[in-house]
Design a protein around this nucleic acid. Structure first.
Ligand code: SF4
Ligand code: SF4
Lengths: 132, 132
DNA sequence: ATAATCAAGATTAAATTAGTCCTGTTTTGT
DNA sequence: ACAAAACAGGACTAATTTAATCTTGATTAT
């Protein structure tokens, strides 16, 4: 069970922005900084913007900046923007498995999913701030 | 991020065996009991046998039985037999990402992976035993 | 012997992931 | 006004993974 490259890229991208507080960075600049293909990164930034994690500025001199303090953005936020933590299909929506109403395993996956989400939620981006 | 159907099937399979202690169950019988295609289940049982979770008996009247007490088999054991918990590529093997030696995110994934593994490891199959 | 049953490799089909391409819109600066 | 610099968003493609089947062979109880 592994995360997508896209999710890794999204986190690298947010870390990059955390280290340039107050600046508006273009896709071109971020792409070079974190070694992610420009067009692919553009799609990722659209998702991060849709989730309210970054703010976009269109037009010349446009680009992206963090939408809020790094301490208020965590790994779960990124996952939910790119690939929600589902674990098992029934843990997201018990209608996705016809056995769920009688299944003894189902509640275990619901618990596990919540605990994994909690593990990701306690890791915020304050730790990646540039040193003083 | 979700588990494979195969992993869900493997767990259903082990739960089925937990509920028939001391019996040797054929692929045919398990397949009908847990609603998983027979040939696909056969492959899964091979992996579970390879991991020492079940014991196989070949030939007529052959089949499978649990290799040890349900309390000594947990969700992590099943995952490792079917789809190891990797989280990010670098959390398994830092040589899989050329950035790992200088990456501030890398150690976070190593921690997260360990914590997710712990969550799965504390859930054993004793809870699925047939009632008295 | 033979029927039942597992073993194991090859193959296939569907789905997902990873990434590109193209056309359009917005904004800055001359 | 207009050109250049940027993001927006949908369509498209290629590679990989997942889900499953097919085929042939080995083992064992009766
Ligand atoms: S755990 Fe049970 S309910 Fe959930 S997908 Fe598996 S069989 Fe269905
Ligand atoms: S977290 Fe860092 S080391 Fe790990 S895969 Fe991403 S970039 Fe590479």
């Amino acid at each position: 069970m592994r995360i997508k490259r896209e999710t890794d890229y999204a986190i690298r991208c947010v870390v990059h922005l955390v280290r340039r507080p107050g600046e508006v960075a273009s896709i071109e600049e971020i792409s070079k900084g974190i070694l992610v293909p420009k067009k692919f990164l553009a799609k990722i930034l659209q998702k991060l913007a849709g989730a309210g994690i970054v703010k976009s500025h269109r037009g010349a001199k446009g680009g992206f900046e963090l939408a809020r303090d790094p301490a208020l953005i965590n790994f779960l936020d990124i996952m939910e923007a790119i690939q929600p933590v589902e674990m098992n299909i029934c843990a997201m929506d018990d209608r996705l498995c016809s056995l769920s109403n009688a299944c003894a395993v189902h509640p275990v996956w619901v618990e596990v999913r919540e605990e994994v989400r909690a593990i990701l939620a306690i890791r915020n981006f304050a730790r990646f701030r540039a040193g003083p």
